[in-house]
Each structure stands twice: as C-alpha cells, then as structure tokens.
Design a protein around this nucleic acid. Structure first.
Lengths: 334, 334
DNA sequence: GATATTTACGTAAACGTTTACGTAAAATAA
DNA sequence: TTATTTTACGTAAACGTTTACGTAAATATC
C-alpha cells in the first residue's frame, strides 16, 4: 500500500491532476461538483501533499536555517524560540545548526543548508567571517544577523546597542553612588565584547572617574570564566564596590566567587549583569541586569528574513531597546 | 545567471548526466580521464547538488523532526544539543518544533513534518497522545521518545528510571539523617511526575517513615511553581528538614522562597533537586541533585532513530543511568 | 441565432536528480 | 583470430508536483 499521490487522487476523483492541484490551492477553474469529488477522494485516500516535490518545482522549501555557536545556552535557546515561533506562524520550518564556533563546522553547515535549498539563513552571536559571507552570497538567499553585525558587509541585523547598554549599566552603578567599578568583559578581541568595554570606559570618563585597566578582567561570556575573573579581580585589582559583568552567566559566576569569600551581595559588593537570561531572576539574590529581549529579537529576525524571502526590498536593521531591570544585586550607597 | 545543475555540468564536461552522477557518487563506470573532466566542470561552474531533487527520487530527505514542549528551557536545549550533534555527524538535519504542550500545535507540526517528508521523529518530554500516535503511525516513519514513554504503544524510548531516581534522591536525604522530608512534585496527573512521587513514597515506607500527603506540594516543573509550592509548604506543612524537588528549576524556586524567609541552606533546610541542569552548579550554594545525562540522552535518541531509519530492526529502549551529584544543599544531620 | 466571451477542464512540460537498461568499444580468453 | 566478458559510457523513465497552454462546452452579448 503505497502513499497516495496527487495522481491517485485524480484517478479516484476522475479528473486530471491539474484539477486536483487547482482545488487544493483554491484556484479557479472547476465546478463545485468536481471540487467536492476531489475533496472526497483526498479524504478517502488520506492524501497529503509532498512538500519535496512542491519545493522542486517552486524553488522554495519554506525552510530557513539558523546557526548558533551553542544551541544549548540559555541565550541561544531564547532566540531560537522566538525565531521558531514566527517562522512557524508564517509557514516556515527551521533547521538548527550548532557551529560550536568552529569555522569548519560552520562551513559544513552552510553547505548542507545550500544543498537543502533553504530559503534564508539567520546567523547569530558570532562574527561573520569572510568565508561565511562568500558562501552565503553564493547561495543567493537572504541572511539576517542576530546579536552581531558586519561592518564590512551590508547585511541586516537585529541587536541592541551594546555600547549604549554597557554605558547605561555602568552609569546605573554610578548613579547608585559607586565610583570604584570593575568590569568583567567578554572575550578579548570579540567585537561586541569590545564595544561593551568601550561603553564602560566612556561613562567613567564622562564622570571623571579614572579608567583602570587593572579593574577589567576578561572571560568568555560563560559562567566559569566569570567566577575565575572575579577571583582574579578580588585578589589583584584595586578595591572596588561594584562590578559590571558583560553577561549574566559571568555575573553569576562572579557572585559565586564573592559568596565563596564570605562576602555579601549587594551589601559588600554590587553587581550588574547583561542579558537578562531566565537565570537572572532565579538566582538569589535576583540579579540586576540589562535586559535584552532575546525572544523578541528572534521574532524580529524571523520576520525580517521571511519578508526578505518574500521579496521585500527593505534591508534595514533594527536596534532593539534594552533596559535595566532592577533586582537585588545593586546597593545604593548613601 | 542561473544556478548550475547536473545538466550544466554534463554539458560542460561533454558527458551525460548519468556519468556526472556516477562520479559524484563514486560509483563505477567511467574512466579516470572523464572523472577529471567532470570534477573540473563541477569546480568551474561551482555546482552544488540539489538535495530536494535527490530527496524526491530517493524518498529520503536526511532530515528528522524533533518536538519539544519548550525549546527554550534548559532541559530541552541540552537534549536538542545532543540530538543535533549526532544527527549532523550522520548526515541528517534537524527541524525543531515547539509544541508549547498544545495538542493543536503539535498536530500542525506533525502535518508539516509529514509534508516535508522527514525520515524520522524524536518526541520529547510529553505524553504521547493517541492522536499523535495515529498521525505518526500514518507517516510510516520511525519515532523515538525521550524523557517519556508510552505504555500503550510499542515505541522505543530513552529515559532514566524516574521511580528509582526519585527513590534514591529521597534515600540520600534519609542517609543524611533526615526523616521529615517534603516533596515538590511535578504536574499532578503527569505520568513522570507521578512516578517520582511513587519513588519518594516508597523510600519513606521502606524506612518506616510515614508518608504525609500534606508534605507534598505540586508544581509544574518550572521555577515559579517551585517558589510558590515552597511557600505553601513552609506555611502549612508539618515541619520538615529536607526537601526533594522533582526538578532543578523548582528546587531553585524553593531555595528562593527559603532565603526570602531568612533561612539558610543547607543549615536550616536541605534540598535535593532533579535534572542537573547547567543551572544547578551555578546557584549559590550549588545544588545537590540527581543527574540526568540530557545531552547524552539526545545523542542516544538520535543514534537510535537514525539506525531505525536505516533499517535497523532493533526497537529496544534504553534506560540511561542517573546518579546523585553531591554539591552543597544537603546537610548531614550528625 | 450568430458571435464573443467565459468556464471548466485536460495535456504535457518542467523542476533536478537517480538508475535501470542498452550498447559500442576495449580488454580478455580461447 | 574469434568469442566472450568487461568497461565506459548514453538514453530515458521516474520521483510528485505546478502551471502554461489548448479546447470544448456553457454562457453572455447583440
């Protein structure tokens, strides 16, 4: 018993495949009577269209590819959730790819996506290397960037203004009376990480506070690196009363290091994070942090990508708004 | 300038498409000279095979579908990571679906997956309703369950032994001298949740400790429900010195409620969780919990599914091993 | 009632592959 | 040398759709 095709339906309904296709697509060109016959045949045979055959002829697969450095991170999975949500609403499926930040894997994935004829690609949280760009360009399909951007190439992106967000996060600490402020940055050399320390440095200058290289430590955005960086800072840096961590994970790692020293948060040290992962509100005390609307960013990216796929000419980018969510890790000093 | 097809390559290399296909697949039936000609033409034209056309004829798409109740949870995303990893290794792509635990959405996804002709499906963390099973069965493709199982239908699954794990988690508390032990269970009515309270109940009996209905509260596995359940327990339940939470998220929610009361963990109250999410090790104090090898479960599921797709007859299930990871939320009562 | 238009279809090509089958030339065997 | 096998291809059908084009019948127009 083979899977019924449109031909079987046509035969059963005593019409041509063209007619079946027409009624299935609600086009015109058939009487109500034949429509009923066809629909009944579909029902009886349990016919389901084959999207592969359809894709072959339409040159559209209704599928997009999404690349993450680490799908399992709280950060990525929120974005994925958003992307998937609107993709599904709009009739697209999403293929996930985990690049593990490896160039080779990434290129492999791009090749697979090309062969699978995806209609578009979302690329997230990593710098878009030249070779990626070339591959993507050859594929001739729209791309949107999330949480990253390319200065070299003109590609629409969705992200927050990192510099400004970092500026405001640090400013928030200053407003709360802190003047000795350390920072744990993301990977040294990474562009977004870089932008964040610029923001941090800028506020300090604007408030006539001296920027001390010795008060900034570098992690890789992940929890463990935050803990280590904090241990370093606690041991070696000039004393400080507050910390800005460039990711929530690192902030929480830092909190662990602080607690381990028997210090209290925010009594002995204030901390502000960055991201507002689900994590942030469930730690104790709940983490004050700058909120990035991750799921929303995913939704916007999906939206934009699909518009592009459907021939929109609008290649604009969007800077989504961030804001500080005040929880309980920052203490106001008198 | 259109995308080159196998025909273009054939023309450029002055051979037939059949020959091109043969060299591309490393079959036999061509001289070394023509092989070189073909490869060169491929190179020059920048030809890339079209997996859609291939899928149409092979009736294989090298794609699997994966259904999650919530892709963005730390739980799901670890499983996804594992699934994706081996799928990619074995030449399969994965389409993610977020059911949001809604029957209608789930059915919609199953239909999409059917139309897209996926070769297999992984279904995770939800009970497999009859209608899902029927749809899956009609599709005629292999399915594997993760973190759930069906008593009604014969479908391979990958999960831990929940009852035993719950038994051991509670036993661990008893071994540490606790006898007044509360529990926060997952959704009342859910099978896995049910199994876990059975395990809990069983140890108590085996140690001649009276099981008190009033010492078990019900959440939905998520953080907030854990906090609420703990507040309830703290207010209404007979006093207890330890808690077994059926998920790490709930355990952490409970910790928040405890801290909010000014109590200390583990000094005033011991807590053991369940899952060992990334979360667990980064809270303070780090959470003692029962480890489920989530990524590994994903890998195993992927492995099994692909074997099934490739005609393995082995429909066995696997119970993966769990173990308690001792961190700092359980105090030994002298 | 003749002509023009619209409706309701059917036919067949096309999408880009894979592969069964056929065949001429080359290699081997007798 | 001739007969046989093997090699190296080419031809064409098939996968399941969509859609341009054609056409007979029905309907509308005058």
């Amino acid at each position: 018993m083979n899977i019924p095709t449109i031909k079987d339906v046509a035969k059963a309904a005593n019409v041509s495949v063209a007619t079946v296709s027409r009624v299935l697509h609600n086009l015109s060109g058939y009487s109500n009577k034949t429509k009923l016959k066809v629909l009944q045949a579909v029902e009886e045979l349990g016919y389901h269209p084959n999207a592969i055959a359809r894709g072959l002829i339409n040159k559209r697969t209704q599928t997009i590819g999404v690349l993450f450095p680490d799908v399992s991170s709280g950060f990525s999975s929120d974005i994925l959730h958003g992307i998937e949500e609107v993709a599904h609403e709009k009739g697209f499926s999403v293929i996930v790819c985990n690049t593990a930040e490896e160039g080779k894997r990434t290129m492999k994935y791009l090749q697979v996506l090309r062969e699978k004829q995806v209609d578009g690609v979302v690329f997230t949280s990593e710098v878009l290397k030249d070779e990626y760009y070339q591959a993507l360009k050859e594929m001739g399909i729209p791309v949107v960037l999330v949480n990253t951007q390319s200065h070299k190439y003109m590609i629409p992106y969705v992200k927050v203004d990192d510099r400004q967000a970092a500026y405001q996060a640090t400013a928030y600490l200053i407003q709360n009376g802190h003047r000795e402020i350390a920072m744990i940055s993301g990977t040294l050399g990474d562009t977004v990480a870089g932008t964040r320390v610029e923001g941090y440095r800028q506020v300090l200058e604007d408030h006539d506070i001296q920027f001390l290289e010795s008060r900034v430590a570098y992690g890789d955005f992940r929890w463990e690196s935050g803990r280590k960086a904090m241990e370093l800072l606690l041991a070696d840096a000039p004393p400080f009363t507050a910390l800005f961590a460039a990711s929530d994970e690192m902030a929480i790692g830092a909190m662990g290091a602080v607690f381990a020293k028997g210090m209290r948060i925010p009594d002995d040290l204030s901390i502000i994070g960055y991201d507002d992962l689900t994590l942030a509100k469930i730690t104790f005390p709940p983490l004050t942090t700058v909120h990035q609307p991750l799921a929303q960013m995913g939704r916007l990216a999906s939206d934009k990508l699909i518009a592009l796929i459907e021939n929109s000419q609008d290649v604009s980018s969007t800077i989504v708004s961030h804001h500080i969510v005040e929880r309980q890790t920052v203490r106001s000093k008198g």
